[in-house]
Design a protein around this nucleic acid. Structure first.
Length: 436
RNA sequence: GUGGCUGUAGUUCAAUGGUAGAGCCCCAGAUUGUGGUUCUGGUUGUUGCGGGUUCGAGUCCCGUCAGUCACCCCA
């Protein structure tokens, strides 16, 4: 009597079946192509780090969502919950070995012990791209261009990148003596789109006077209440903030560049975008799918000029962005933009006679030499089973070779979808057709 | 972490507290050197798991696990 162990997986963790995994890899390959085209290079870091490296020295009672434990050597360790913090540590470790500005991309799984929801898991993949070592509008602009390029590459051109700058909002708060509450206020403001102005005002009421609440809402609402382009909105925000600042100057430069490049349509200055994470120090942005705004931001990031200062005295200002692949995949699934194409090979060589097994493999080899992915059906089962197999793997072509063809030295080729067949072909002719 | 909803065969779904069913899928065959149609036969469940109430629980109660939605936070 054997006891069966239930093949269960943890809450928020998942298996990926071939069809799904192939789609993921297709997306990843395209993203990688875009990043490489900008001169970004790949890196990797460990999943497990010292707890103090990931959470800082403060202890981190607040970060309950982080998987942390002691390892067999009694070391306090934690699993990475994003790729940005490990990257900061990475830069502090290796900046002297790297060309600056260092531009890298990093695809990896990250872990958060939060409650699950659709498109939201405990193990999920992020696709980060960051530029470290310079604090320039040019670098900020480049990241924005990459975001747009990335979504173009995966056939999702209808996006809106909403951006803002923390400095503007902070100087606005400073003028009103609210700077010390900036973190709380930013958190509330971040929710505006979700909960509406009335509730936002109510929440802000606990932190500021009613006059101040009105001013904050006017500031946040400037995007919608001011007619005109991003630059007009920026002017209005500067006015409310009490004059131009370094931050607003930086933002103006970026917005002008986007205008010049003819891209302003995809970018919207939105002062309600502030980002919850407090390590951002400059420009911040979130990316939404125009056809599916409800799913939330699928790519966000910003400038963080002090992140590496936890680990080094070297000045390492950075700007970057992160695509949430799983949320994005959930969105693409809903939009139906993920086709079902060949999951495996391009051709299946049917097994019609078990004595011809070697011949089948020889044909398959000949096709592979020509760059055509080919596989042999590996058992002498009846034809209908072999057809079913091909269909499940979305294999578009079949090759039939029985005693008759063997004697004549020919092959039969069949398009499994249209059922069109070609008789009495030589391998060279098969290759010719498949390469069309 | 808190709260709501859900959990029956591989899958989609049935079953007034009274013997767990159907379609699809799958398997074998009818007929195969060529599969989307037809016919015949067949397998599949500790009703997520564990307790409790009851003569009797898929059904009611409690716990637990998982999914989902909201809060929270975010990707």
């Amino acid at each position: 009597m054997s006891t069966i162990i239930e093949p269960k997986v943890l809450k928020g963790f998942r298996d990926f079946l071939p069809d799904q995994e192939i789609k993921r890899r297709k997306i990843l390959a395209r993203l990688e192509g875009v990043f490489r085209s900008f001169g970004y290079v790949p890196i990797d870091t460990p999943v497990l780090e010292y707890t103090e490296v990931l959470l800082g020295k403060g202890g981190g009672e607040t970060d309950k969502q982080v998987y942390a434990f002691t390892d067999h050597g009694n070391r306090p360790v934690a699993m990475r919950f994003d790729l940005t913090v490990p990257f900061a540590r990475f830069m502090a470790s290796h900046y002297s070995e790297l060309p600056l500005p260092f531009k890298r991309y990093h695809f990896g799984k990250v872990y958060r012990g939060e409650n699950t929801q659709r498109g939201r898991y405990r193990e999920f993949m992020q696709c980060d791209f960051d530029c470290v070592g310079v604090d320039s509008p040019s670098a900020d602009l480049e990241i924005l261009l990459m975001i747009r390029g990335a979504f173009l590459a995966i056939d999702v051109p209808n996006i809106t990148i909403r951006l803002s700058h923390r400095g503007i909002f902070n100087s606005f708060l400073q003028n009103r003596g609210l700077l010390d509450k900036s973190v709380e206020i930013l958190r509330i403001v971040d929710k505006l789109a979700k909960i509406g102005p009335d509730q936002t005002a109510q929440l802000l009421g606990d932190l500021a006077s009613s006059q101040q609440v009105r001013e904050i809402l006017a500031f946040i609402g400037a995007t919608t209440s001011v007619t005109g382009g991003n630059l007009e909105v920026l002017a209005r925000l500067e006015e409310l903030a009490g004059g131009p600042t370094d931050g607003s100057g930086r933002l103006r430069e970026i917005l002008l560049a986007l205008d010049t490049l003819g891209l302003s349509e995809d970018f919207v200055l939105d002062s309600s975008i502030t980002r919850g994470l407090d390590y951002y120090t400059g420009i911040v942005y979130e990316t939404f799918l125009n056809q599916l705004p409800g799913i939330g931001s699928v790519c966000s990031g910003g400038r963080y000029n002090d992140l590496a200062s936890l680990y080094t005295k070297e000045q390492l200002p950075g700007v970057g962005s992160s695509i949430g692949l799983d949320r994005l995949m959930a969105a693409l699934e809903e939009l139906g933009t993920l086709g079902t194409e060949a999951a495996g090979s391009q051709v299946l060589i049917f097994s019609m006679d078990s004595s011809l097994g070697t011949t089948y493999h020889r044909v398959a080899q000949a096709l592979r030499t020509e760059g055509i992915a080919a596989e042999v059906y590996l058992a002498p089962k009846k034809m209908s089973a072999q057809f079913t197999f091909a269909e499940k793997k979305h294999i578009p072509w079949g090759i039939f070779l029985g005693p008759k063809e063997e004697a004549a030295g020919t092959l039969q080729l069949k398009n499994l979808e249209t059922r069109e067949t070609w008789d009495d072909l030589q391998i060279s002719q098969v290759i010719e057709i498949l390469k069309r």
